[in-house]
Design a protein around this nucleic acid. Structure first.
Lengths: 369, 369
DNA sequence: TATATTTGCTCAAACGATTGCGCAGAGCGT
DNA sequence: ACGCTCTGCGCAATCGTTTGAGCAAATATA
């Protein structure tokens, strides 16, 4: 098809002429392969792109477009199956209806559920989510941030991998709203939604103490992450309150099955051997189970276990595992509420929310009383 | 700041004049709040936006830009922390470097892992992924498709929820490449990467038969989904080959724990009671375990179990569950390879791949011999 | 010296939507 | 007949990039 410049058509007076001109020069209309635009509809209906745009974006009444024009335009749009080019709209309006999600590990069921709810909440409001994964690496995190910013997302939800809020505070000030989820920064005004990890650590430990345990070891994940630190704080406080400060034992450094496995191997060789282990994640918990079994010991008869996170399968292990459960769905929903509040008001917010975790009592704790 | 039209500046001869004119009219430069564009760099360096664009997009040599110009431009871009507006670029180039992912359930660990690998593979090639969730609903699926298309994704990877390939074939023909993952359509030329579900069903059943089981029931997920049908086919074929066609028992209709639970309740009341159950998903398998335990029976002494999918926790159940494992990571990577092959060649491909699942033997099968 | 080639860069038109401003005609009052 | 408001719509700029075409000056060639 011969290309030609619309600017040259200034001499044409009205839309009918336009159409005639077009049909004169264009190859036979290939409905199926032409992509529809405002201007193609404009040509065929005889209204300007302005009017077409206003009708199809629901601004018809605001601009007093006649009913006749409205139905003509809408029918043509439906007939040719028009769908607006969001990219072009984004460029003009400086809004992408997209939120960026930065997670440490999408494969982790905990974050997968978080992502799932966030995606659903976004869809409800005609937003989409760009999901990125840092694999707990701060370098990747920085790269992901750059990607999301240049894609002009309207907001960023992040479970940060590092411990420095600076970059997120800068983004929140100069670019788009940032909401932290699951993990927060001490001393930062950034909004967040987390669970009370201190209370989680405290309650888990207290449950063990209530049952007569004194040699309680704790296997942690990434030391620098705030949830980990808070859980540890809960653990140590509970131990101290029970007069067990000299029994405090903290091992490990990764949220992984292997870390739980190896650290348990070591713990089982200690004297005195711990009577209970508090695992700071579900993966660590599985590692504990593996090591305990390999050692020919039994839960809870030989050693008790409390784990973090609530996974479906935990009730079907033998024994069922006592655990701290976090309200993931509520967290995700609140987080999105904050995000949209911030986007819609065009103001930065500083709401910081801590939801309460709950203790799920099962059979993995022996009573030593 | 007073707005003015660059078109009016035609009388200015060169960039120095341009700059002077600008600095005359503009308010004092607010470096921190102005967003940098090609044209702002153009003004400050004295080169045209064309040249700036070519330097910063790595086309400098192709267009013979002098070293002097290159370093000046690059330094200024670095100094003001320029990052290109991807939206504008997308509009112009008709390419978004984005792939759309449509999954039935992001919260399902199986699909979460798939998503995780796909996101990582995309990132490697400077692509991002928009992840959507259909909750196994064809209506949602259609909505997600529309969203992705109007966002002009460069390709769509989908684990389809329905059984009609028509819409995807149309998209693949008229819009962007489509690659199916995990689930395929019979009789469609659409490219896909799945595992051999027939063989999975066959092997699982044969393992039970080998161990002397004859009353083998199967609890399925969504009947219409292709993987489900293939697994069922494998099951029935194995039964027939062993002369057990009259013992074929297929129950259930959902990939969920509850479905597995309820159907097992019913199966346990049958006479003769099945000696083994083949669960077509991990969730169904957990439901079976729950029901068996509630009935006061034991696995594998009273009833044997083979499950589908490979989850970390399955080795820590008592007994560890024998299962069919799918190579999720390989699937995702191959799928992305096909996608990029199609995008880069601008051709549609019809590669259809079936990877082999593997049987993981554990302790949930009793030998009745 | 005249002509061809190369070098280094610019012009201006796209991409497809949104939107502030403005304008012609109808209706109405006086 | 004149001015006023209201109706219904269009003009043209704009968002920030990319890109085909082309141009002047410098250099090479004849």
């Amino acid at each position: 098809m011969r290309k030609f410049n619309v600017q040259h058509l200034k001499f044409l007076r009205n839309h009918s002429d336009y159409c005639a001109y077009f049909s004169y020069f264009c190859a036979p209309h290939k409905e199926n392969t032409m992509k529809e635009t405002l201007s193609s509809i404009s040509q065929r209906t005889g209204y300007s792109t302005t009017t077409v745009s206003r009708v199809l974006s629901g601004q018809a009444d605001k601009w007093r477009i006649s009913d006749k024009a409205q139905t003509e335009i809408r029918e043509e749009a439906a007939r040719c199956n028009y769908s607006p080019d969001i990219i072009a709209r984004n460029l003009r309006t400086k809004k992408t209806n997209t939120i960026g999600l930065i997670l440490p590990s999408v494969a982790n069921p905990y974050f997968a559920e978080l992502a799932s709810v966030i995606i659903a909440e976004a869809a409800k409001r005609k937003y989409t989510a760009i999901v990125t994964d840092t694999t707990e690496d701060e370098g990747n995190e920085a790269a992901n941030i750059a990607t999301l910013l240049s894609r002009r997302v309207d907001g960023i939800i992040v479970a940060p991998s590092g411990s420095d809020p600076a970059i997120f505070e800068e983004i929140n000030k100069k670019h788009v709203p940032v909401v932290l989820v699951d993990r927060s920064f001490d001393g930062s005004a950034l909004p967040y939604v987390t669970t009370n990890n201190y209370s989680g650590g405290l309650e888990a430990t207290k449950a063990l103490i209530r049952n007569g345990h004194r040699e309680i070891a704790c296997i942690q994940g990434i030391k620098s992450s705030v949830p980990n630190r808070k859980r540890i704080l809960g653990y140590t406080d509970a131990m101290k309150k029970a007069g067990l400060e000299d029994r405090i034992t903290i091992a490990g450094n990764e949220f992984s099955l292997q870390n739980g496995y190896l650290e348990t191997k070591l713990l089982l060789n200690r004297t005195p051997r711990p009577t209970a282990i508090f695992a700071l994640s579900n993966t660590i918990g599985l590692g504990v189970i593996k090591a305990v079994r390999e050692a020919g010991l039994r839960i809870p008869e030989d050693i008790s276990l409390v784990s973090y996170d609530n996974n479906m399968y935990m009730d079907y292990l033998t024994p069922a595992i006592s655990r701290i459960s976090q309200p993931v769905e509520d967290m995700a929903k609140l987080c999105m509420k904050l995000m949209f509040e911030s986007i819609e008001s065009k103001k930065r917010i500083t709401t910081q929310l801590e939801l309460s975790p709950s203790f799920i009592a099962r059979e993995s704790i022996a009573a030593l009383l």
